[in-house]
Nucleic acid binder design. Structure first.
Lengths: 154, 154
DNA sequence: AACAATTTAGTTGCACACGATTTATCTAAT
DNA sequence: ATTAGATAAATCGTGTGCAACTAAATTGTT
């Protein structure tokens, strides 16, 4: 017997992630306004502040973004002076992305601003680590599903 | 003393929501492929299957989307035969959005497909209701923050 | 009645996000 | 050495998402 009742709860979970992601995005947009950075630009810089240089491919595997998204985003970051891009000498297919001196100098200022804003939250009644773990668990199950047959049939 | 260490965990929480939302989006994209529906189009139909007609404004307040996003989305749904749009007689500013006969007929089929795909997940070790509650709690705190001064200063 | 303020959709512009394709480069097998 | 296959980034097309603005209609106040 097939169940044609809408799985509200599951839809709610997806919708909760969808809504929370948008809210966080908006929150970071405000927090980062002094630096004219969007959230995707910010996490790109976060990754590069940890490891620089990285190829577009490496960056993309950290952030789960492909070159179709990253290339224009990186061009904007470059134009604003945060990063530089140059073809690798060893392998001319690759482009090495590095943080600039300017980005290195601004790093702590950006960190502080984000910290100040996030510290406005109390996470009342939220077990932070457990929440992250459960999100990771859900993501891991979503990854497993994408290999299955049902989801493959167009 | 200001803390200039990056709040990795906080970044991880936002990044977790960001990544999970994208993964769910991809999951629904696959599940809904037979109907040529995107996830935002799907939740729009979900809302309308519950209550139809609704004005663009009402729909937007349910989905947290403004007319800049909804108008083109609704035009696509209309072109594909899922919904119809017509100006209200009582108030010509408003546009009433309704599901079509086609959408009503297809509803159970869509529900079943989504259910079948979601049932592939086990939610192992995930306390579903607690997870939802905690996400709502985080969202509620984000809403509170947006009223505060710090976040306002451009 | 007249008109200022408000409300509703629509429009525009910009920035993702991603599938699909293209171009250039590199690698491997002969 | 040559060339088929693989790989990296860029490009293109479509669909959100949202801020800012516009146009039209309604409401409230006098």
């Amino acid at each position: 017997m097939s169940n044609t009742t809408p799985r509200r709860l599951d839809d709610q979970l997806c919708f909760a992630f969808y809504s929370a992601s948008k809210k966080f995005n908006h929150f970071y947009q405000d927090a980062l306004k002094p630096f004219h950075l969007t959230y995707p630009q910010y996490i790109t810089l976060l990754a590069l502040w940890e490891t620089s240089p990285m190829t577009v491919r490496e960056l993309g595997s950290h952030l789960n973004l492909d070159s179709g998204t990253l290339t224009p985003l990186l061009k904007r970051l470059e134009k604003q002076g945060w990063i530089s891009r140059e073809r690798s000498d060893q392998d001319e297919r690759q482009v090495n992305v590095s943080v600039t001196e300017y980005a290195v100098e601004k790093r702590d200022e950006v960190y502080e601003r984000v910290n100040d804003c996030i510290n406005l939250m109390s996470f009342n009644g939220v077990d932070y680590h457990q929440l992250i773990d459960q999100i990771h668990q859900v993501m891991s199950e979503l990854d497993d599903i994408s290999d299955k047959d049902l989801i493959q049939e167009a």
